[in-house]
């Protein structure tokens, strides 16, 4: 029976694996590999739907994420906001999670500034509301009752963009940028009850949960993870945070697959030995 090399033994110090992981991520960031990225039909589909909206369309973007996943959702949020503003769509930003409030405001303002958009006319930010179910249902009844004021204390009845918004009928598309299961509530309440179109921009970890709704047509578009953001950037012809990270993502994935293979070889050889 062959003697197992040390790297195949299962008691390998985990800190060696940690160092390998750090190298797999850092190396491609410093020395760019330029691996080609292909656009998937799901991303093309949402992009096409966004293109079909016109400059009278109002898009409600809900920043349903927390600070913990910001590096993953920021490229997604940037991509969709760039698309909205470059096509002169009107954007209303809200958040159903407290931490998404400050982060949502940040990305919204940054992207609006890139396109010289005017607050109150081209976009507004309304801030946070707790109790997801009640908020989503209430927005379908009386928008101003849910958000009497914007994030900065201005009356939503006075802002040019929001003064005529009564409920979901005045919104063309809802987009939930999320790291959790809040889109389930958007589907259960805004889509099912008010027949509203919804698109989901999710972290990869949540993606598999939304495929049944994409298949059933309950959500109109699904873009997920850094890869989704990178694909959207290709369609926008504006390579950004998503594209920059794809080489590192590829290398780290390769390392993990190699670790799975090595671990399994070690496991099978030890089993045969026994």
């Amino acid at each position: 029976m062959p003697v197992l090399p040390k790297y195949m033994k299962l008691n390998l110090d985990r800190r060696i694996i940690f160092i390998l992981m750090a190298i797999a991520v850092i190396f491609p960031l410093v020395f760019k590999l330029g691996l080609p990225n292909k656009v998937t039909p799901e991303v093309k589909n949402l992009f096409g739907q966004m293109e079909s909206l016109n400059d009278t369309s109002v898009v409600l973007i809900s920043f349903d994420f927390e600070a913990s996943s910001f590096p993953e959702v920021q490229p997604l949020a940037n991509a969709i906001l760039m698309h909205c503003f470059s096509n002169n769509l009107k954007v209303i930003g809200i958040s159903l999670l407290a931490e998404g409030t400050a982060l949502g405001e940040k990305v919204l303002k940054e992207n609006a500034a890139k396109y010289n958009k005017v607050y109150g006319k081209d976009y507004v930010f309304l801030g946070f509301r707790p109790q997801v179910t009640a908020t989503i249902l209430a927005l379908g009844e009386d928008f101003h009752k849910v958000f009497p004021e914007d994030y900065y204390g201005g009356s939503t009845a006075d802002l040019e963009l929001t003064k005529n918004i009564k409920n979901y009928k005045d919104i063309s598309l809802i987009i939930s940028v999320t790291d959790g299961d809040i889109p389930f509530s958007w589907i259960n309440y805004a889509v099912a009850r008010y027949n509203k179109d919804l698109a989901v921009l999710a972290t990869a970890v949540m993606a598999t949960s939304f495929y049944p709704f994409l298949n059933s047509g309950q959500i109109k578009g699904l873009v997920n993870g850094l890869k989704g953001a990178a694909e959207y950037e290709i369609l926008l012809k504006k390579p950004g945070m998503g594209a920059r990270g794809m080489d590192a993502q590829s290398m780290a994935h390769l390392l993990i697959v190699l670790l799975v293979i090595l671990g399994n070889i070690g496991y099978w050889m030890e089993r045969r030995k026994k």
Binding site: V25, T203, A204, V205, G225, K227, H253
Partner: peptide, 19 residues
């Protein structure tokens, strides 16, 4: 599939911090 995507998410967060 969910495990695969979980790996993807966690790696993305690390890339964000490394960047």
């Amino acid at each position: 599939a969910t495990f695969g995507y979980t790996v993807m998410s966690r790696v993305t967060l690390l890339i964000g911090r490394a960047q």
